[in-house]
Amino acid sequence: MTRLQRFSYAWYAHAFLRELVLIYPTSAIMMTGSGISPLELSSLFMIWGAAALLGEIPSGAIADLTSRRNILMVSGLMKGCAFLTWLAFPSYGGFAAGFIVWGTASAMSSGASEALLYDTLREEDATAQFSRIYGRAEASANLGVALALLIGGFVAEGGYPLPLILSAAAPWIAAMVLLVGIREPSRRTDALRSRTFVGTLRDAVSELRRNRVVAFVVLMLGVLGTLWGALEEYVPVFLDDRSDLRLGSIGIIFALAYAARTVGMASAHRLPGAPVPNAVRLFVIAGLILATTALPNGWWLALPIALYSGAAGAAAVLLQTRLQHGIEGPARATVTSAAGVVEGIFEFPLYLSIGLTAQLGGWQAAFTMIAMLTVVLSLGFRFFAPRELLR
């Protein structure tokens, strides 16, 4: 076995274990069961997003100045500590503290992971394999999430301490995999690193100001791409409210939605025509489908939720593809990350709206609101889109 093969297997194992968090499908139910109201639940998600957003800004610079492997290890250890915080302090303050730790851990891994992979491949003269290894690592992470969703609910039926402990153990083991199986690649010292960082930011801002197509797609991707990301946090409590399903069954429905999203994202490139009009159509269809959750109950709720997830996932891939084709300058990664910043900012009013709507009218009203918002925002972006994006 070559050194690159050993690295690849360790890299895939790390990605899988880091996302094998068994509390995923029932965390929101656990919190509401501890007396957290819908509005308080939304505020917790806002705290989580704020921690990640604030940490996103310096994370790239830190990754350039220190060991990226060590950063990822610390990130995994912190992620595990977040779930132990929930176990020790099952209250609003404890949940908020856990989300802050988790959000900070996510920000620390952002950028460092891709950079560590690329530097390792460059040292092995194998940068051409980046897309293959990166893609397989993402698939491994998705497999970890899917498995956690499938079995996490059943484990939680015996109480929340066990899934919380196992959720802490998985990213800790992932950190140990990095320690044992991944070697920090050598890097050249760059005396102008700080100036290069500032210059890259300047190039990104210049591109967004000069290229209206790129700026529009960044805004569109950041806003519309946030809808499912926010909605999925409420799927378990919505299903718990609308049906008499067991926690294990809720986890299965959640896993089906995740599987549908994976299929949609993998199949998006097969759609003929311009990416942006196709993305608008998919988001409109997704919104109309989500509105039908007002009709069925029980297992039938899996169908509209899964279809919304799949259609939104395919649309997000189309928008990301159009964005990458539109970027002309050297600051590709920084321009791409601008969509993440937009997403992080848009999450706050979105979480607040969902929480207020659910508090006043119930979880079905909140899901109907998201369905209407998906349709209205999609059509609004279609109306104001530059002509270059429509052909």
Rank of each mutant, 00 (worst) to 15 (best):
E232A: 10
S110D: 10
V155K: 03
L221G: 13
V317S: 10
L178Q: 01
A28V: 03
S267Q: 06
F381P: 05
A312Q: 05
R6D: 13
L39D: 04
V198H: 10
T26M: 10
F216M: 04
G326R: 07
I285H: 04
A139S: 14
V335W: 09
L290I: 10
S43E: 09
E388N: 09
A169M: 08
L307S: 05
G35A: 13
A82P: 00
L192C: 08
A302Y: 09
R270P: 00
A15G: 10
T85A: 02
G158A: 10
P25S: 14
A274R: 12
L77C: 02
R193A: 10
A385V: 12
S8P: 06
A286E: 01
G310M: 13
G159Y: 02
N278T: 12
G80N: 02
P349H: 05
R242M: 01
L208S: 05
F16L: 13
V213I: 09
V213H: 12
T200G: 11
D241T: 12
V376T: 12
E184Y: 01
T200S: 09
V235Y: 13
T336G: 15
A257Q: 08
M31R: 10
W11V: 03
I36Y: 02
L247D: 00
Q320H: 13
P277T: 12
L307F: 08
I23H: 00
G153P: 14
A358M: 14
V341H: 01
R391Q: 15
L149D: 01
Y134A: 12
F367G: 02
F45I: 00
I57N: 08
V375N: 09
L4F: 04
S75P: 00
L41A: 04
L44Q: 00
L271F: 11
L219T: 10
G144H: 03
F383E: 15
R132S: 11
R18W: 13
A63H: 15
V214Q: 04
S59L: 03
E207T: 03
V21H: 04
I173Y: 01
I252V: 09
L117G: 06
M30N: 00
T293E: 06
A294E: 02
L192F: 05
E56W: 01
L390R: 14
A50V: 06
L84K: 04
E138N: 13
A169S: 15
L179I: 05
V276L: 11
F16W: 12
L149F: 12
G153H: 09
T120I: 10
I182N: 06
G313C: 06
A314K: 08
I253K: 08
A115S: 12
G199N: 01
T85E: 02
F45N: 00
G80Q: 05
P277N: 11
G135E: 06
G273E: 05
W86I: 06
F154T: 14
